[in-house]
Design a protein around this nucleic acid. Structure first.
Lengths: 213, 213
DNA sequence: AATAATTATAAGGTACACCTTATAATTAAC
DNA sequence: GTTAATTATAAGGTGTACCTTATAATTATT
């Protein structure tokens, strides 16, 4: 997808900017990446089309709120991996930055948060840079982790075992379905759907991703 | 590069084969990946050109020794990450496989070995599949056997006597350290490290493995 | 041996992120 | 205000890994 490279750009813009509202000139991005001005300009147009950056000709780019969120999430992943590499694996800290650059694209938000918990929610990376806080993404959450009363829409099922899909299907839990969490305990979750109420084992609910409203 | 996708193919061939010398039909790869027969054929030709597989028309592909090594290294990374995800981050084991699929391409051999050590050198993945042992890369050389001027990085110490580790540690000879061979004679080797120069008995140097640049 | 099914290969196409060269538009400097 | 420098954009090209359609070669079945 567009995602990985786009994220790198957003991260770079975030790092390069001094004040949120002062545009970062494309020349700085050109230098940062070592790409040609034309390539940078092309990419900026794509980012702009996605509304991740605002492009001000002859001035530069600023991050939109969405773009900033993506950049912060990337920085968070990067710096958590740096901590993991140095603290847990004892990788020399000079190497951690580069190695984290590869890992930061290889994990989901969920794994990132688990990693943060494992590391004890560190506040900064080995080089001292602050780790941005986790942002309960407007995006995807896990059905199993929602409080009673939460409402949203099923987005996807993270694993495609036939048995699981059948279990979910018979209960009407399909991508697109609207829901409200009616109740939950340690092994079951009760959710209200458009036309009925369904009981679902927590284990199955862990495979279901939702978008909250 | 070619690397990432190529590795996936080699890994798939390794998984799909029953006996090392019986070729895996391309049709099986087509089904495994869900790609078109033409795409698979194209990729197989590339792998064959690299001598990672031997292609037997109308029969299938077998792994060359090199190809098998790449496949085993990939499997090792994959299964170590699965263990990390389930054991350390408590990711549900159904999700571990898919997530490990992304992480396995994001780490170097060195980080992989550090991860293995951290995990306690597990023998199998959460699903019970055996984790292939680490294979000393062809690149790995012995610090004692290098000519003057050779430069590289310390990878590991092949014997873990406390005295040896202490001797090396005080001289800054630790995994990850970059070095240049400054001089050597029949009983001593002089190596330049990042910030200083160290003299090391040849006998100790024989226990140190390095990766050349 | 003839036909059916598989497998191989050729030809042409898509998307992505990069590239270079060249020209046009704008801003900055004198 | 004219020139110089920067920035934008157009046009065309690269490599990788995928795609479809269509035809050729081989193997399997009857």
């Amino acid at each position: 997808m567009l995602q990985e490279h786009a994220e790198e750009y957003l991260g770079a813009i975030y790092r390069l900017r001094t004040t949120p509202d002062i545009p970062v000139p494309l020349a700085q991005l050109t230098e940062y990446f070592g790409y040609s001005p034309v390539s940078v300009h092309e990419m900026v147009k794509k980012l702009s089309a996605q509304e991740w950056v605002a492009y001000h000709p002859y001035q530069g780019v600023t991050l939109t709120p969405t773009g900033q969120k993506v950049a912060l999430a990337l920085l968070r992943r990067h710096r958590l991996w740096e901590r993991f590499l140095t603290d847990t694996l004892h990788v020399p800290w000079e190497e951690a930055h580069e190695l984290a650059g590869a890992l930061e694209h290889a994990v989901t938000e969920e794994v990132t948060e688990r990693l943060a918990t494992f590391l004890g929610d560190p506040a900064s990376c080995p080089h001292g840079a602050p780790i941005p806080p986790s942002m309960p993404s407007i995006e995807e959450r896990c059905l199993a982790d929602l409080p009673t009363g939460a409402r949203g829409r099923i987005t996807r099922v993270s694993q495609e075992s036939a048995a699981l899909l059948h279990e979910l299907g018979t209960r009407g839990i399909l991508p697109g379905a609207l829901f409200v969490i009616a109740a939950q305990n340690h092994d079951e979750i009760v959710i209200e759907l458009a036309k009925h109420t369904a009981h679902l084992p927590l284990k199955s609910a862990q495979m279901v991703r939702v978008e909250l409203f």
